[in-house]
């Protein structure tokens, strides 16, 4: 043999799942929701998405190359996912410069300050979104009307989201049943013909993408299901106790960013727990905090805050919630 043979420790077979494949799988899963948004919001959706993705990629590349002096790894797709998710969390009439600030905060503060992919404690897209939400509350809470403003960008016709109507109305002593009349029906909520952030409107498109990710084994079902179940349970209890002052569970489930958050944001690998038990704790925490903010808090929507709060608990969950070892119970008992 003239060529030297290789020697390496076992195993000698490796699976074909790579970070790249996982990330592009998420992007693919987000496409149905993206198309629905383009249908309802038109050019606004296209512009916001393009600016968000391009600026996220650009900031990732520049920071890696010139600040961290490392080989840029934008092709791994994680910045693309962050850009897309950030766009999904913004109203489609948001001015371009705000989006760029959001991307800078998401990539720069949310991800790179901690050392890049894998080291960030908080979901970068949500860091960007919450930063914008607090810094630009007016622009961030003006929601274009679907279909009507398909050909407009920043000059779109706007109005409140279903959750906004509910929050506002309940504080004016109106009953939930009265308010439901002013809100689009469940079918509109389900299909996405409502006002809201670009990607959160259509529950069905998000669920389709989620099922794709489950089949491809990109995510496991534990986090989305635990969030949805806990939201249903919590709002269900409130609704049964006082149906006049509380919206029904189905409304909570289909409105706002719950589906987007539960399926795509909370399941972010880096910022979610490692064990199944931990995922349940994490998901239930998000569900409870979301409902608490929606029902008792000043903001109409609380998914972003709930996920960020629970992100902060992830290291703690990982430290104390351990998988059950093989043969361990026997040892202890």
């Amino acid at each position: 043999m003239d060529k030297l043979i290789t020697v390496s420790p076992s195993p000698h077979y490796y699976g074909d799942t790579t970070v790249k494949k996982l990330m592009y799988g998420v992007v693919f899963a987000l496409l149905p929701a993206f198309f629905v948004s383009v249908y309802f919001f038109g050019i606004g959706a296209l512009i916001v998405t393009a600016i968000s993705i391009l600026s996220c990629l650009a900031f990732e590349y520049l920071i890696q190359k010139y600040l961290m002096k490392a080989e840029p790894s934008i092709s791994d797709g994680s910045a693309l996912v962050t850009g897309l998710l950030l766009a999904f969390n913004l109203p489609t009439n948001l001015p371009w410069w705000i989006i760029i600030i959001g991307a800078l905060v998401a990539i720069g503060v949310g991800k790179m300050t901690f050392g890049g992919l894998g080291n960030n404690p908080f979901n970068p897209a949500l860091v960007g979104r919450v930063f914008l939400f607090i810094s630009f509350p007016v622009q961030m809470t003006s929601w274009p009307t679907p279909i009507a403003s398909r050909l407009q960008y920043t000059d779109a016709v706007t109005g409140p989201t279903p959750l906004g109507i509910m929050e506002e109305g309940l504080s004016q002593q109106e009953t939930a049943a009265q308010l439901m009349e002013q809100i689009p029906g469940y079918m509109e909520l389900f299909l996405g013909s409502i006002r809201g952030s670009m990607g959160e409107i259509s529950a069905i498109a998000l669920i389709v993408g989620g099922i794709y990710m489950l089949i491809r084994k990109i995510i496991t079902w534990h986090i989305p299901v635990s969030i949805i179940l806990s939201v249903l349970a919590f709002t269900g209890i409130l609704w049964l106790m006082n149906p006049y002052d509380n919206a029904d569970p189905l409304f909570h489930l289909l409105s706002g960013g719950l589906m987007l958050g539960a399926i795509y944001m909370a399941t972010d690998y880096v910022t979610s727990p490692m064990t199944i038990k931990g995922m349940w704790i994490f998901g239930i925490g998000i569900g409870v905090i979301t409902v608490a903010i929606r029902v008792f808090g000043a903001y109409p929507e609380g998914v972003s805050f709930a996920i960020l709060i629970m992100n902060a608990f992830v290291p703690l969950i990982n430290k104390y919630v351990k998988p059950k070892g093989f043969g361990e119970e026997v040892r202890n008992g």
């Binding site: 290789t6 390496s8 490796y14 970070v19 992919l117 690998y269 490692m274 064990t275 093989f326 361990e328």
Partner: peptide, 30 residues
């Protein structure tokens, strides 16, 4: 030859796949 070299290692993205497949219930990433 084409299958004998390992892929270069990247950052851990904490996807928890190693935890979920470990037959002994360990946490390999940790």
């Amino acid at each position: 030859q084409s299958e004998s070299l390992r892929r270069p290692a990247l950052n851990c993205i904490r996807c928890a796949k190693c935890v979920s497949i470990c037959p002994m219930g360990l946490e390999p990433y940790l």
